[in-house]
Design a protein around this nucleic acid. Structure first.
Lengths: 229, 229
DNA sequence: GCAAGTCCTTACCGTCTGGTAAGGCATGTC
DNA sequence: GACATGCCTTACCAGACGGTAAGGACTTGC
């Protein structure tokens, strides 16, 4: 039962998994409506009904792509929030994970951005159901930091987090447009926009933290400057 | 020649203009690929070939929609930059115009966001050609303000502006998703996210400007706290 | 050996797509 | 009256779409 089933399941997952991979790439580039099932099948290297053998319909392929993205955060968020301790650490941990997740594969950001435009109703339900509790938890940390004088007093925690989330998604989704649009040197362009993105998120939350561009260098002395009064 | 042509042209523009209006609405909601020419024709109230009588192809409808959006800024940007004088005024003027433009009709933001995803190459060309000079001009103002100590020293002007631009576009494009996702009271939701959006843009550029949420109330005393040293 | 089930193929279906052909109907020109 | 032009209609087309039917190749369980 074991060896054969593993082999069979590995084979099954092969087409199914690469269907999700190729579908994410194509949905990100051309959108759900702009991607034909035939395109996905060609990318995987099988026939169109072979894809429909693993997924009842094109709609199920979309859901599998979205689940692939969501499943990461169901695992990562609890781990991050429990692991990090200090307020600055927590910021670096969540923002870093957020940025790295979308930056490592910008197609994720593009798919989410498209989902926001194509099916706002579905995404709204998702936000209300799954994202809201975690957003509330992180907002609670900001609220606590505010009372200790770490953050701007007029920060609207939930609104801040949503805007930063949107900013990271959009910035990574449109990285190829924005960066190469104004830069000529392909080496520096990534760092430049990434650094400014982190700076905006940080500077609009922590008052007057100078030269905190590189988290590694500024990690030591950036936290003791404002003690709880 | 005059009266008849005016009447004829008015009639002509009637269908043509409302085609652009309806197409923008439908492209924003369902995307370019997700909108059939028949849908546009139905919304206008004419037959499909009637639309194609005014526009050689569906692609030309898209271009007309984009031109409608772009033409506003070719007029507004020079006016704004020349009219505003102080550094804070200039920020309020440009940011306010930017926000109001997309907020007044969020479909504009959705169309731009979709264009960013669907045709990054075309948008890149547009950025390089039309947007870059103006972006450079505004960046120059920030650079000047930096030397007078008005802004954070580590601001990357161009990157900052692009991120803020993206943030305004995304925030207005996804306003129905984000706001009603977490708020239950439909009255407060708009103000709340809008204020935080402006706060982020402002706080990440101007160091330590407290309680500057409302530009009108804070306009008087928000600028004299940090004089050029 | 053989029925059952999995995985995948080719062939096909109805539907919808962007775009075209051809003509009706006004208005204005000579 | 003949003719041209602008605006719009119905009828139609070739191609692409998502999805189905039917069956072949192969493995599994008995």
């Amino acid at each position: 039962m074991s060896v054969q089933m593993v082999a069979a399941r590995a084979h099954e997952n092969d087409v199914r998994a690469s269907t999700v991979v190729e579908a994410m790439r194509l949905f990100a580039a051309h959108g759900f409506e702009g991607t034909a099932l035939q395109d996905i099948a060609d990318a995987v290297g099988v026939s169109k009904p072979a894809v429909l053998h693993h997924f009842p319909s094109k709609e199920h392929v979309r859901q599998a792509v979205l689940d692939e993205i969501l499943s990461h955060w169901n695992e990562a968020l609890p781990r991050l929030l429990l692991a990090a301790t200090g307020s600055g650490d927590r910021f670096d941990a969540v923002f870093g994970e957020l940025y790295r997740f979308f930056s490592n594969n910008p197609d994720r950001a593009r798919v989410v951005a498209r989902e926001m435009l194509d099916r706002p109703g579905e995404l709204r339900k998702l936000l209300r159901g799954s994202v809201k509790p975690w957003l509330g938890a992180v907002a609670g940390y900001i609220r606590a930091g505010k009372e200790r004088g770490l953050h701007y007093a007029d920060v609207d925690e939930e609104a801040y987090l949503i805007h930063i989330l949107l900013l990271v998604i959009t910035a990574t989704a449109s990285a190829t447009v924005t960066s190469s649009a104004l830069e000529t040197d392909p080496r520096s362009r990534h760092d430049r926009y990434d650094r400014e993105l982190a700076r905006i998120a940080r500077a609009s939350l922590f008052p007057s933290v100078p030269a905190a561009l590189n988290p590694k260098k500024a990690a030591g002395d950036s936290r003791k400057r404002k003690a709880p009064r």
